[in-house]
Structures are given as C-alpha cells and as structure tokens.
Nucleic acid binder design. Structure first.
Lengths: 220, 220
DNA sequence: TTGCATTTAAAACACTTGTATGAAACTATC
DNA sequence: GATAGTTTCATACAAGTGTTTTAAATGCAA
C-alpha cells in the first residue's frame, strides 16, 4: 500500500456524496468520478460497495462509542463505581448529539453523513448497528448501579427514551426547526443535551423510588 | 373499473411483501408474482411504483391521523377549548403506538408495513411525511392552549420528545426487547402509551411553570 | 536492470430494474 | 350482437447497476 492516495480519495468522496444526496442515489460511478479514480478501484480496495459504506460508518461510530465509554468510565471512577444518573445519560447522548448537531458540525461532512446514516438505514449500516447492543448494555449496567432501587424494566425504558430523544432530534432536526419556526435552537448543542438529559433523568427518577434523593436536574 | 380485483390484489401483495422484506429488495416482479397479476398491471393501475407505495402509506396514515384528530377534538370540546396536556399527548401518540405495537398488531400486515415505513424512509413516503407538519401544528396549538404559561420553545421540545419516544419505540421495538431480555413488555400497548405520555408530560410541566397545578401523571 | 508484487486502467459482463408497447380478451352499452 | 371502452397479457426496451476480467503501469527490492 504505497500511498493510500486512491483509497482515501474514495473514502472522502463517498462520504461527501452520501452526506449530500443520501445512499439511495449515489452510485459507484458517481463516487469514482468525484474522487477522480477508476471504477474498479472501489472493488479492489474495499471488496464491495457495502464494505465501503460499512467502513465509513464504522470509522465514525467507533469514535463516538469510544468517547461515550471514556466519559462513562471517568464518571464511574470518580464516583467510586457509581455515577450520578445525569452524568451517565450525558455520556450516553452527549457525544452523539455533539457529533451531529451544532453550527459547524451541521455543515461538516462527517456529521451530515452520520445524520444520513441515521435516517436511511441501509443494510450494511443496519448490520453494524445490531452489534451495538453490547455497548448499550454497559450503559444499562451503569444506570442500574446508579439507581439500584429502580427495576430493570424502568432502567431499560429510560435508556430507550434517552436514545429516542437524542436520535429523533438528530434525525428530524430539520422538521423541528421548521415546526417551531426557528424558535428551537439546534445550534446550541449543549442546550439540547441538557434538555434530553433532564427529561430522561425525570423519566428514570420520578414515581416509585423518588423518595430518598430527588436528583438535581441537569443544568438548563 | 369492473371489479377492482387486480388493483386490490396488488395493494395487498405489495403491503405484505414490503412488511416482510422492506422496500429495499422487493421489486415489481415480486409483487405481481405474489398477486398473480401481470407486470404491466402495476403501471396501468397506479402509474408508477412510487405511486403505489405512496397510496399504501397514505391509506394507513390518514387513518391514524384522523383518529388522532378525533381524540384531540373530543378532548378539547369536553374541556371547553382546553384539554389536559396528558390527554393531548395521548391523542398524539396513542393511535400511532396502538397501530404498530400490540400482540396482534405486531403480526398484522398493516402494522408491520408502517414499522417498515418508519424505518426505511423511502422517497415517496418521505414526501408524504413532509406534508405532516400542518397536522402537527394543530397539536402544538392545543398544547399551547393547555399550557399557556409555557414558552413556544418548550412546547415544541415537548412535542418533539413525545414523538421521539413513540416513533423510536416502534422502530427499535425489537432491539428494546432484546436489550431488556424480554422484560420490557411491548405487547401491553396501553402501558407503553402511559409511559410515553407520562414522561412527555413531565418534560412539559417540570421546572418554570410548574407551580400552579402539578398535573396528575398519566396512569401507570 | 531485472524480477515481482502492488496498484491502476479500460472495457465488458451479467443482471436487474421500472416502464412502454401493442395486441388480445373482456365488459357493458346501444 | 356489433361497438367502444376498459382491462389484461406477453414481451420488448432502455438504462443503470455492482462486479469481473485482463492487461498495462507503477513502485520497490535484489
């Protein structure tokens, strides 16, 4: 692999095109034209179109997952094995939201690519997402340690709702902006994170086991 | 249009195949084989493949939207123009969840088709969904009337989060079941509705304007 | 340079896709 | 029962797809 020039040109061109026009109508010929390389180069370097897409997605998502786990681990170590639920939730949804929203990220190729991946759900990407369960289990475990009085059911529903709010906000960010006539500011990512964490925390702490220590809500 | 036999056979076959295998790998030839009709019949009766898909989706979603508005209108009339926020939220997410989850619905073709439509987001369906904004605006209006002290921003975030939880739960129902090892019971639709409504209500009533009348949480 | 593996190149392959065509079969009306 | 309009059918079409092939070029080591 002398220079990797062709290979990385393909990756960059593919990510750009997919980000702009979606997976549906970008062909290998579009990609190689954009990258100024030969058509056969894609199959030579990646084996198939699907493997190219998979590599693009894996690259971006392991970065996010690593950041998630880093934040989670740091929080649990600092709390002696038990992190506050808000911090856990922030570690869960923060990296994803920061990676896709925000004034600069909105225009970054990587961010737009990940939004597309979240919207269109093409087979190679779905396969990778299915392997994400082990990753999520770590968060379920941390949440259980943080809220030992809550049932497993509640924990999983809270996890589900937290991911729901984060992913849906990313995926439908355009519609939310239009619906609210620009009032909901998606460029202020930390505000979005705080809102999601706040609601998810309420979901997890309200009701049954609330008596002992009504956890402080995440900052507005 | 003598009998409509061919036309409805195509619709039924298409919905079944799309529900089972997704939009990605179902061709017109698959559909006409399943329906036992001629290939050209699809273009004759529907004009194009996209229009066939659109008709399938429109049929199902106007039913849901009508039910949503019916519940909303009934609630507002009963309350003299102001319905409790829980009831509004229930009208928003109830019909959708009931249409896609539940022990029988899970296996109904229509439900599985709508889940697919929610996951794959193919162009003709996306076009229709984009026209849904006016519909959602009616709910935003009702929510504003119900919670006059909340800012428009909060209202729209609440609306966004409610839809997020409902749609994500539908879309990722399989993963949630796997992740929770079957503990989260998605067959009990009314429990799911209650959970979503409860969390969304908290999102909309906590903090700033909570003082006056802390709304009763939706039943567990 | 010579030899060898890696990389690029052009072309064609094999196949699937949605759609269009034109004739045949059918249905209902006069 | 002939006719006009509708529906069905077999088939062809045209375009586009990812992938393969075969050969040429390139880079690197001996």
């Amino acid at each position: 692999m002398a220079s990797d020039h062709t290979r990385s040109a393909i990756l960059a061109a593919a990510e750009r095109l997919y980000a702009d026009r979606g997976f549906g109508d970008v062909t290998l010929r579009d990609i190689v034209a954009e990258a100024n390389v030969n058509l056969a180069a894609v199959n030579y370097h990646f084996g198939s179109k699907d493997e190219l897409i998979a590599e693009l997605f894996v690259t971006r998502s392991i970065a996010t997952n690593r950041e998630r786990l880093r934040e989670l681990k740091a929080a649990e170590e600092q709390g002696g094995g038990r992190a506050p639920i808000e911090v856990i939730l922030r570690a869960l949804v923060g990296p994803t939201l920061r990676g896709c929203l925000g004034p600069e990220n909105q225009r970054s190729t990587a961010a737009r690519f990940m939004i597309r991946a979240s919207i269109e759900s093409v087979p190679p990407i779905r396969r990778i997402k299915n392997r994400e369960i082990d990753h999520l289990r770590k968060f379920a475990g941390a949440m259980r340690r943080s809220l030992p009085d809550r049932s497993d059911i509640d924990i999983h529903w809270g996890l589900n709702f937290a991911l729901a709010m984060a992913h849906h906000t990313i995926r439908e960010s355009e519609r939310l902006t239009k619906l609210s006539e620009g009032k909901c500011d998606l460029d202020d990512v930390e505000d979005v994170v705080a809102r999601v964490v706040s609601v998810a925390t309420m979901a997890l702490t309200s009701g049954k086991a609330e008596a002992k220590a009504p956890s402080r809500l995440a900052a507005r």
